[in-house]
């Protein structure tokens, strides 16, 4: 029981901006517990790690170099463009688009798809928590 409380406490510490609504906070808690269970030394999500994950290129699903910025650009307050279809994408930054990071189902769906596209695998709990901690501050 003590241990669970400790972990939950860590989860709150991980929410830098605190800009998440209640359902998203619960989702971040879930990710925290999962990250902790994989790595005992896990000490909270880190927006800086999230930023570097977001901007670094990887060999993606198609076998070519791609990063999150390929579609969302490096300035999350700007419109992006889907590199596969040319369709424009509204800003990812909650400060520019209040809808972002408000719907857990939507966030889970796009993280699953987008991690697969960029890393050719799903994201770990820590990676997802880090990148959300970065996006929420934008």
């Amino acid at each position: 029981m003590k241990r669970l409380l400790f972990v939950v406490g860590l989860g709150f510490a991980g929410l830098h901006a605190g800009g998440f609504n209640a359902p998203m906070q619960a989702y971040m808690q879930e990710l925290t517990l999962e990250a902790k269970s994989v790595d005992g030394a896990f000490s909270g999500f880190d927006a800086k790690r999230g930023e570097s994950l977001f901007t670094t290129k990887h060999i993606g699903k198609k076998g070519t170099e791609v990063s999150c910025t390929t579609c969302h650009t490096a300035n999350l307050k700007n419109n992006g463009q889907n590199s596969n279809t040319n369709k424009s994408i509204l800003p990812l930054a909650p400060s520019a688009n209040a809808q972002r990071l408000t719907d857990v189902k939507e966030v889970q769906k796009w993280l699953r798809r987008n991690f697969n596209d960029v890393f050719a695998r799903e994201g770990t709990a820590q990676e997802k928590g880090d990148v959300l901690s970065y996006i929420i501050t934008q």
Binding site: K61, K62, N84, K105, K109, R112, R113, N114, N116, D117
Partner: peptide, 9 residues
Amino acid sequence: HFGTDASLG
């Protein structure tokens, strides 16, 4: 889905 992941629940 044409080189991208478009999976749904």
